[in-house]
Simulated scan of single mutants.
Amino acid sequence: MLDLTVHCLAWMLSICTPRPRGRHRLGVIPPLRFTPVPPPRFTEILDGNASRLVRPYILGAAEHRRQRERRRALYLATVGIDVGPDHIHGVPVAAR
């Protein structure tokens, strides 16, 4: 199977690449040399309990609530309603 693949690729390359012309052209195309590499063998069993499964994209209840409040504030801002924070950088902000 590997020989067939190599021969197919060599044939396709001979069609796609231009043939050299002139004095310095290649006389005989050297055969392709390919030594197959054996696939890696896994000897040890992976332990699923050894690594901690952490999914940082999972949010807790408090983060969900804050995210929902921010999204609601952004949506209402597009409509023209300001529901921003009461304090910005420790300074109380009056509602207009």
Results as ranks from 00 to 15, higher is better:
residue 60 G to L: 06
residue 82 D to S: 02
residue 93 V to F: 15
residue 54 V to T: 08
residue 88 I to V: 06
residue 76 L to M: 15
residue 9 L to D: 00
residue 12 M to L: 14
residue 31 P to E: 11
residue 20 P to Y: 08
residue 7 H to L: 07
residue 75 Y to H: 06
residue 31 P to Q: 11
residue 51 S to T: 15
residue 29 I to Y: 00
residue 14 S to G: 07
residue 26 L to N: 02
residue 24 H to A: 14
residue 38 P to M: 11
residue 81 I to H: 03
residue 90 G to R: 07
residue 41 R to D: 02
residue 10 A to H: 05
residue 44 E to Y: 04
residue 13 L to I: 10
residue 16 C to F: 08
residue 5 T to W: 04
residue 34 F to T: 07
residue 93 V to R: 13
residue 12 M to Y: 09
residue 57 Y to S: 06
residue 43 T to G: 12
residue 10 A to C: 14
residue 16 C to G: 04
residue 78 T to C: 04
residue 1 M to V: 02
residue 85 P to Y: 00
residue 80 G to E: 05
residue 91 V to P: 00
residue 7 H to A: 13
residue 86 D to P: 09
residue 93 V to W: 10
residue 39 P to W: 00
residue 91 V to S: 05
residue 24 H to E: 14
residue 86 D to W: 13
residue 62 A to I: 07
residue 23 R to G: 03
residue 90 G to I: 01
residue 70 R to W: 02
residue 52 R to S: 06
residue 69 E to L: 13
residue 7 H to R: 14
residue 63 E to R: 11
residue 80 G to P: 02
residue 29 I to K: 08
residue 3 D to W: 01
residue 12 M to D: 14
residue 16 C to L: 10
residue 91 V to K: 10
residue 1 M to L: 05
residue 69 E to V: 03
residue 95 A to E: 12
residue 52 R to C: 07
residue 24 H to D: 14
residue 88 I to D: 00
residue 33 R to N: 06
residue 5 T to P: 01
residue 25 R to A: 02
residue 92 P to N: 09
residue 65 R to Y: 11
residue 6 V to D: 06
residue 60 G to M: 08
residue 41 R to I: 05
residue 40 P to H: 01
residue 49 N to Y: 14
residue 25 R to G: 10
residue 71 R to W: 04
residue 17 T to Y: 05
residue 83 V to I: 14
residue 35 T to K: 13
residue 39 P to T: 05
residue 96 R to G: 09
residue 84 G to R: 08
residue 27 G to I: 03
residue 95 A to H: 15
residue 80 G to M: 08
residue 38 P to W: 05
residue 26 L to T: 00
residue 80 G to C: 01
residue 44 E to L: 00
residue 8 C to I: 03
residue 84 G to N: 07
residue 64 H to L: 13
residue 33 R to M: 07
residue 51 S to V: 15
residue 96 R to A: 10
residue 25 R to K: 15
residue 46 L to Y: 13
residue 9 L to M: 12
residue 53 L to N: 04
residue 60 G to W: 03
residue 67 Q to F: 09
residue 96 R to Y: 15
residue 96 R to E: 12
residue 8 C to Y: 04
residue 73 A to M: 11
residue 62 A to Q: 08
residue 93 V to S: 13
residue 6 V to I: 15
residue 74 L to C: 15
residue 71 R to H: 15
residue 65 R to A: 12
residue 36 P to L: 04
residue 21 R to Y: 12
residue 93 V to Q: 13
residue 16 C to N: 07
residue 35 T to R: 11
residue 13 L to R: 05
residue 46 L to A: 11
residue 19 R to T: 09
residue 57 Y to R: 13
residue 43 T to R: 10
residue 67 Q to P: 00
residue 30 P to I: 09
residue 24 H to L: 14
residue 43 T to I: 00
residue 50 A to F: 00
residue 18 P to I: 04
residue 94 A to N: 10
residue 65 R to C: 12
residue 88 I to M: 03
residue 64 H to M: 03
residue 47 D to M: 09
residue 81 I to S: 00
residue 23 R to K: 10
residue 12 M to Q: 12
residue 77 A to L: 07
residue 25 R to Q: 10
residue 42 F to K: 13
residue 18 P to L: 08
residue 62 A to L: 07
residue 30 P to Y: 03
residue 66 R to L: 11
residue 3 D to V: 01
residue 28 V to C: 04
residue 59 L to R: 06
residue 20 P to F: 08
residue 91 V to H: 05
residue 88 I to F: 11
residue 54 V to A: 09
residue 94 A to T: 14
